[in-house]
């Protein structure tokens, strides 16, 4: 279980996160949403000890990350960040095997290789294993990065906008993979920009604005037009989508001037 308790972060005088509390359990996909600059990425960085909290603590199964070596954190937490490209000619297999880094002493064992192969199969990219990473498409690359994260055999999977530069099919594929991983007992915390995908895939959503948690709870409770209006400063309409059994968020826009009307 991942537990964030009274987390505050200051960059100099500026307060980026203010007294954040959040719990994420095994099998749960927790979405973090909020406008740019609301502190989402900072929160992920605090979880992996890239940044040290000014106040408060991040606990993994009750243990404070500040008391953990970077190696130990990497055994517990895997991060899928927005990798646009890798410019070094490693094979896909090598990149995924790098997920085993926290476990490897001098050279990789057959166990490490087996886990990396399993991760390749789970993410449906086993057939790409001998390809060079520089030759992959954006969607394939993102799957490689997820495979590498799974090869870390973590308890917690953090995703920082994993789908923001992917086409719609790849977005769905990637989020399905993540959902599946969570159902197998991972704690998943994801920063997602697309409110509708967040509503559909997340079990719990944490809405941030200017470093404060505005609301936490189920997508239906959090993604109300008033909450979103406050957080994003944008009028939206929230409707039910009976086919997905989820909610649908649409910004309230001016009626379109159709070209055909002007003729």
């Amino acid at each position: 279980m991942l537990e964030i308790k009274g987390l505050s972060m200051n960059y100099g005088q500026r307060c980026v996160l203010n007294n954040i509390g959040l719990k994420a359990r095994e099998g749960e996909v927790v979405g973090i949403i909020g406008p740019n600059g609301s502190g989402k990425t900072t929160m992920l960085k605090a979880i992996t000890k890239v940044l040290k909290p000014t106040y408060g603590a991040v606990l993994i199964d009750g243990k404070d990350v500040r008391e953990m070596e970077s190696n130990e954190i990497a055994k517990n937490v895997a991060v899928v960040s927005q990798v646009i490209s890798i410019n070094f000619e490693f094979s896909v297999e090598d990149i995924v095997l790098m997920g085993r880094t926290p476990y490897i002493r001098s050279s990789e064992s057959t166990e490490d290789i087996k886990i990396a192969m399993d991760a390749l199969k789970k993410t449906n990219i086993y057939h790409l294993k001998d390809r060079l990473i520089t030759q992959l498409s954006g969607g394939e690359l993102q799957r490689v990065i997820i495979a590498r994260a799974l090869a870390q055999t973590p308890k917690i999977l953090l995703l920082d906008e994993p789908t923001s530069h992917l086409d719609i099919t790849n977005q769905i594929d990637v989020l399905n993979l993540v959902k599946e991983a969570s159902r197998k007992g991972l704690v998943v915390v994801a920063v997602i920009h697309d409110l509708n995908l967040a509503a559909y895939y997340c079990d719990k959503i944490c809405l941030l604005r200017d470093g404060d948690v505005i609301a936490t709870g189920t997508p239906r409770d959090v993604l109300t037009s008033s909450n979103i209006g406050v957080a994003f400063n944008l009028p939206v309409e929230v409707t039910e989508n009976s086919k997905t059994n989820s909610i649908f968020v649409m910004p309230v826009l001016e009626p379109r001037n159709e070209v055909s009307n002007q003729r």
Binding site: S70, E72, A74, A78, S81, M98, T101, P102, R148
Partner: peptide, 8 residues
């Protein structure tokens, strides 16, 4: 990335 993979 290296930090996330546990490299000091």
């Amino acid at each position: 990335e290296a930090h996330y993979l546990g490299v000091d």
